[in-house]
Design a binder for these strands. Structure first.
Length: 683
DNA sequence: TTAGGGTTAG
């Protein structure tokens, strides 16, 4: 029999604290050989030591052999499982403990609730909540804070708030969990209000965790002003130095606010500021700000410093390739993703699906989708969106039905893509049914963007009277996208008056958007109303607006080249213009008649033809024809809609050159092959 | 002898 259990217990405890597993094992063996089976008291210490050192196998073996287990034995096992990421076993052990007739205390509850939170198992979290209510432990500080955390991690914010309100003697941990809960659920204002409320509490002082959560809320709001204030507080409290997570939160906040200089500065001045999280934030900030070259240079620098990209880094940099239609680079990254094992990540997969889709390779996009064993809503949303962009409305609908029958819940984003798919493919009736089903079947309230999709859908189909009716029934006025769709439809279907109304609304919503003025002027120009065209131009001049230049990008030999209309800056300009002349002659032989109506300028016909010939998309196509090997598809990305005449011309260029040409404009894809185009309703 | 919160994504 062990004479001095307290001394051994102390020794075991010290091994547990310092992680000396081997010493602990030796002592355990010594105790067994010298004194036989350890008492419950000593065994509990051993259990704790094994759990703290991550040796769950020995903990389980010992626990199974214990002749008598008490409350602490069970609790130690639950905590051990939870802290070693073995969450289902933590929950299982909790229920075995109850079945063994032992009444759990706040310690066991905390750990079991944490396990439910980590797994996102709302049902087990709720059951634990119920049991804690019965035992009167739900308002206890640890249990209550963990329950609130669990509910917010399971996206049940109202329940989280209710539990949090009931917690007695909240401390900074409780507050941090709640602030973070608001932020993670997208309630950024609420998060910052909670933060302020906390600051007024006399008994609680903000710590680093609290500031990090507040910064994350600030990042969500993309508010530079608030962010700077918070940054000042962080400095004042002395938290700014030496904390990697804090520096990462600051970098991310500035990146999200588009303040890339500040973001870079925070990173550069912090100890250990260059790490995979801050780099990913910075890359993403540059990608969002369309500074692709900078994003790539950080990615390169990251690798040079020996920082291995993770799933976040890959997502962002692949998104950059998608934005630029840089297929070669995207494919290289795909290879790296496979090599590094991040191919299983749902976000990375979804960006790959999106990247291939945006680069025009529908087949690679669907292949990437089919490689996923059990697609999440993220992957489904991506593929539905890609199918929509490619004008494959029916396929998008099939995908949607498969998603639902596979018990994956669609969300608001799913319906945006689905409605767009219906719109682009002219499937108006089905689209309208889907719109109704949002609320009726899926309990989702249609948002502004869904209403805009319906406007677009009816407008494209020329059902403008129904559009007016639909708008009058909407809970609020359409947003800019809605009015813009209407304006576009009015141009296509020659509805001048309605177009003027849409333009007027749009100018109020987006006074800086030169596109509205341009669109309106083309409506007038197509009807030969040159006085009105002049008036719109005057308005643009008075408002000091410049027409956004139409630009086209094309990737040749792994390098992206950009062209504007009438662009004479490229070193190969002579060859390009010679090619354009040749193409002009060859497509004229194929029956091409230039549509000079697309030129909203009052100049000679020959000048109009010259202007059309030198549109940026055509220059890009000509350049790619010269510079890339025969048989390779040409992918051009354009920052606005492709013009009607270029659409006709490129269709024939694809035919005479025997090349696949894909033009991705700011609305959709045009896949030209053998004298035809994939899109079904382009003028 | 047993317990809690923090940074990056479509």
């Amino acid at each position: 029999m062990l004479k001095e259990p307290a001394i051994f217990a102390q020794l075991i405890q010290s091994y547990a604290r310092s992680g000396k597993l081997e010493k602990g094992r030796q002592l355990h063996a010594h105790l067994v050989t010298s004194y036989g089976t350890p008492s419950t008291f000593v065994a509990n210490h051993l259990l704790n030591m094994y759990a703290k050192c991550g040796d769950l196998a020995h903990a389980v073996a010992l626990f199974d052999q214990m002749p008598q287990r008490n409350l602490v034995s069970w609790t130690t096992m639950i905590t051990g499982f939870s802290q070693n990421d073995r969450f289902p076993e933590a929950i299982q052990t909790f229920s075995s403990m109850c079945a063994a007739g032992i009444r759990p205390t706040q310690f066991a509850f905390s750990s079991a609730v944490q396990a439910s939170a980590a797994l996102g198992w709302l049902a087990s979290g709720r059951q634990l909540h119920c049991v804690s209510l019965k035992l009167g432990l739900d308002a206890e500080r640890f249990v209550g804070s963990n329950l609130a955390d669990m509910y917010s991690k399971c996206f049940c914010l109202p329940d989280a708030c209710r539990v949090f309100k009931g917690v007695s003697e909240k401390d900074e941990v409780s507050w941090a969990a709640m602030i973070d809960g608001y932020a993670k659920n997208g309630e950024f204002d609420e998060a910052l209000m909670a933060f302020q409320e906390m600051l007024q509490e006399e008994t609680v002082a903000a710590d680093q965790h609290v500031f990090c959560s507040a910064l994350s809320a600030c990042a969500g709001l993309k508010s530079e002003e608030l962010g700077r204030k918070l940054h000042a507080c962080v400095v004042k409290f002395g938290f700014a130095v030496g904390n990697v997570i804090m520096s990462n939160a600051l970098t991310d906040m500035y990146s999200k606010a588009g303040e890339m200089e500040s973001a870079t500065r925070v990173m550069g001045t912090s100890y250990d500021g260059w790490n995979v999280v801050s780099c990913s934030s910075l890359i993403d900030g540059h990608v969002e700000g369309e500074e692709i070259e900078k994003a790539v240079s950080i990615f390169v620098e990251c690798k040079r410093r020996g920082i291995n990209p993770n799933e976040f880094t890959f997502s962002s940099i692949i998104k950059a390739c998608a934005g630029q239609a840089a297929l070669e680079q995207g494919m290289q990254l795909h290879a790296q993703v496979i090599k590094s094992g991040f191919i299983m990540d749902p976000f990375v997969c979804s960006t790959l699906i999106d990247m291939y889709g945006k680069c025009g390779l529908l087949s690679s996009s669907t292949e990437s989708f089919h490689e996923i064993q059990s697609p999440t809503y993220i992957a489904w949303n991506s593929i539905i969106s890609v199918l929509a962009q490619h004008g494959c409305g029916r396929e998008a609908i099939v995908a949607f039905h498969r998603m639902v029958s596979g018990h994956v819940e669609p969300n608001h984003a799913t319906f945006v893509s689905l409605l767009m798919a219906c719109s682009h493919s002219g499937l108006v009736e089905q689209g309208l049914r889907f719109f109704d089903s949002m609320k009726e079947t899926f309990g989702l309230d249609p948002r502004e963007e869904h209403h805009s999709c319906v406007i677009d859908m009816l407008g494209r189909a020329g059902r403008l009277r129904e559009v007016e009716e639909f708008i009058s029934r909407m809970p609020a006025e359409p947003n800019a996208f809605g009015w813009c769709s209407l304006l576009g439809a009015c141009r296509t279907h020659g509805k001048k008056e309605l177009g003027e109304l849409a333009a007027e609304k749009l100018m109020k919503l987006q006074p800086e958007n030169s596109g509205t003025h341009v669109l309106l002027s083309t409506i007038y120009a197509s009807e030969g109303q040159w006085e009105e065209v002049k008036a719109v131009r005057r308005l643009m001049r008075d408002r000091r607006m410049k027409k956004l230049p139409g630009l086209s990008w094309v990737e040749v030999e792994k390098k992206t080249h950009v062209f504007g209309a009438e662009d004479w800056s490229h070193p190969k300009k002579d060859e390009i213009y010679k090619k354009l002349e040749q193409l002009w002659i060859r497509i004229r032989e194929e029956g091409y008649v230039p549509f000079t109506g697309a030129v909203a300028r009052r100049v000679e016909e020959s000048e109009k033809e010259r202007l059309l010939r030198h549109h940026s998309e055509r220059i890009a196509v000509a350049f790619a024809l010269i510079g890339s090997p025969a048989g390779k598809p040409i992918i051009v990305k354009k920052n606005m809609r492709i013009c009607v005449d270029c659409h006709k011309a490129i269709k024939l260029i694809a035919k005479v050159e025997g090349r696949e040409i894909i033009v991705r404009d700011n609305a959709r894809f045009h896949h030209f092959k053998g004298g035809a185009c994939s899109c079904r309703d382009y003028w």
